[in-house]
Design a protein around this nucleic acid. Structure first.
Lengths: 226, 226
DNA sequence: TGTACATCAGTGAACGCGCGTTCACTGATGTAC
DNA sequence: TGTACATCAGTGAACGCGCGTTCACTGATGTAC
């Protein structure tokens, strides 16, 4: 199993990834393993859905390396998890800002941030789970930072609803922007959280469904086009 | 610290709950500790939100007893957690059945199970979290049992949507009952899960808001009363 | 009423396990002479 | 071109810890005689 395989005529070629034990990096290439560790940790995090269930040993195993190797690249597990999180996670508010670029109509804007919210959640399931699906008693610094982003993002939605109300675009019985925005938030959150949790469920695959799903609650607030 | 306290004139009275070591039960009263264990485990479960984070040692500590005592009342941790769960949790399908009693109109019925779903979740936050907010890879028996209830409950909703479609009560573009039911499920799930997770958020307190919130998505599917 | 005994709620010490982490090491790679 | 050496990516063995769980026990309670 060492290099006698290369000498044997039956051996096809020097196996590149020896399935369980990886080829050692060249001298300046330590960062390659670093990236592989982050990839593996992210995959495990997405699989298990909880940082406590991702063990250093499991990450090392997935990469094909022994546990101490991890510590050559990350000082401890917390840092590793945080870097996974950090790498994946633009803030929600950034996603909103991007989604809103060049849209003036408040209703169109509202629909767009709804879509952006769902996209953000589906693309960053583990950060999403961390921020929106776990009770956050112990205030870690990254969560506090994200919390500000959440509040800003939510306030953006409230503003848009208020603009829509002011422009007479909602049914007249809806006068409280905060209440309406809260319901819309719960709606899109329901979609995201269920889809990233119940992965066995036969979610419709077409983007039309997802779009309909996102829109179906907000439209109920719209004034009839008279 | 033994019984010399009783002999000392300064000692006020025989302390009933010695804060860390409880009084031993009388002979037939083993079940009292059993109930206290369940209470403590439930409290810890609600606090941490995850069964893996509730340790036998922590439960024993909370009750004021040593870990082996737990095993006099429960064969293992899984059973303990299951009994906590079981004690708290009527099934969702039962709640639906109750909610539907005597309602014939499919739309009214749909609205009613929407309300029942939200009520169920708010009244049973920890079972709800367990069943709908955690990924369930390792199939434990209780989850499998509940899964059947979930499926039955969901199918009830699909049936009602189908009835509404057949009766021409939905907008004609909505022809797939499963798709519509899925969106409604996500909507009510969003409300419940956010409300039991973001307990700091200033949720509107009045039942009118909650009712509006539940209804706001389903109504978007209704045909205009022509 | 008094003593011997069975019951059984709860204990203290220990087990094996997987975890995060540390340590001294190995041995292929690249470089200096 | 050939040899000695420094570098450093990755290893193997072990640590202390908290976990679920087991075991032989203790000693207060209630019962039989």
């Amino acid at each position: 199993m060492t290099d006698q395989a290369a000498a044997s005529p039956a051996a096809p070629a020097p196996v590149p990834a020896p399935a369980g034990r990886r080829a050692r990096s060249r001298k300046g290439e330590g960062r390659r393993l670093r990236e592989e560790i982050l990839d593996a940790a992210e995959a495990l995090l997405l699989q298990t859905g909880a940082a406590e269930q991702v063990s250093i040993r499991a990450v090392a195993d997935a990469v094909g390396v022994t546990p101490p190797s991890i510590y050559r690249h990350f000082p401890d597990k917390d840092t590793l998890i945080y870097e996974v999180w950090d790498r994946r996670c633009g803030t929600l508010d950034d996603a909103f800002e991007e989604a809103l670029a060049g849209i003036d109509d408040p209703i169109a804007a509202l629909m767009e941030i709804g879509r952006a919210y769902v996209r953000f959640g589906l693309e960053n399931p583990e950060p999403y789970r961390l921020v929106f699906m776990t009770r956050a008693d112990p205030h870690s610094p990254e969560e506090d930072a994200e919390r500000l982003g959440q509040i800003r993002a939510f306030m953006r939605a409230v503003d848009l609803v208020q603009q829509a109300i002011d422009a007479g675009r909602l049914k007249p019985e809806f006068t409280d922007a905060m209440r309406v925005a809260t319901i819309i938030w719960a709606h899109v959150h329901g979609l995201v959280s269920l889809m990233i949790t119940k992965t066995d469920f036969p979610w419709p695959r077409d983007p039309e469904w997802l779009d309909l799903a996102v829109m179906s609650c907000p439209v109920s607030f719209l004034a009839d086009p008279a």
